[in-house]
Amino acid sequence: MANPKADLLRYLQIGRDVMLWKLDGLGEYDIRRPLTPTGTNLLGLVKHLAGVEMIYFGVVFARPVADPPAWLADESESNVDMWAKPEESREDIVGLYRRAWAHSDATIGALELDTPGHVPHWAPRRNPVTLHQILVHVVAETHRHAGHADLLREHLDGAAGHRPETGNLPEEEREWWADYRDRLEQAARQAAGR
């Protein structure tokens, strides 16, 4: 029998797990360093998603998280949720994300999919929302950032895929991947030269 809430929660958990394994085995510098011109970094993505869950499964349904981090309400600093300050440890951010999961899962478990909510930062025409809409939104946002994290991690040490043990890529040797990349580069240059 179909259970849309359980399906959505399963996909959300897959994305959550991906985000945390992307930190595994990396040092403090690599999980924090900005790897794009806009400063995207692995630990910042995890911090951002903790805030996303606290807002969308907390504030939106009038079920605020107990003792939210100060930065969640701090509008004085742009992108404060997209990077970890030196005093914010990996353990602090991961713990915050896990606490957000627990709160989100409690909200999801307690409410029906058609339960209405209100997203304060969305335009009035997009409100009210339902738990179902918010679940879809947060699953999409989590997986979008998991894709970002996948690219960042691959750039750092070559680890790619959505699971550390098998990933979702063909199982080929490093040399095969280097040859494959070279073929793609050659094809791109040929197409550009036409």
Rank of each mutant, 00 (worst) to 15 (best):
L35C: 10
P37Q: 14
P37D: 15
T38R: 12
G39N: 08
N41T: 10
N41I: 08
N41Q: 12
L42P: 00
G44H: 01
L45S: 11
V46H: 00
V46A: 00
K47I: 04
K47Q: 08
G51C: 08
V52H: 07
V52N: 15
F57L: 05
G58S: 09
G58A: 08
R63Y: 08
A66Q: 14
P68E: 08
P68C: 12
A70S: 15
L72H: 08
A73C: 11
E75G: 15
S78L: 15
M82C: 14
A84F: 03
K85E: 15
R90L: 13
R90K: 15
V94N: 02
G95A: 12
G95R: 11
W101G: 05
A102K: 14
S104M: 09
S104D: 04
A106E: 09
P116S: 03
V119T: 03
V119H: 04
A123M: 11
P124G: 07
R125Y: 14
V129Q: 02
V129K: 01
V129G: 01
T130G: 03
H132Q: 07
Q133I: 02
L135S: 03
V136A: 09
V136Y: 04
H137F: 06
E141A: 11
E141K: 06
R144F: 08
G147Q: 12
R153N: 08
L156R: 07
G161P: 02
H162L: 09
H162D: 06
P164I: 04
E165W: 05
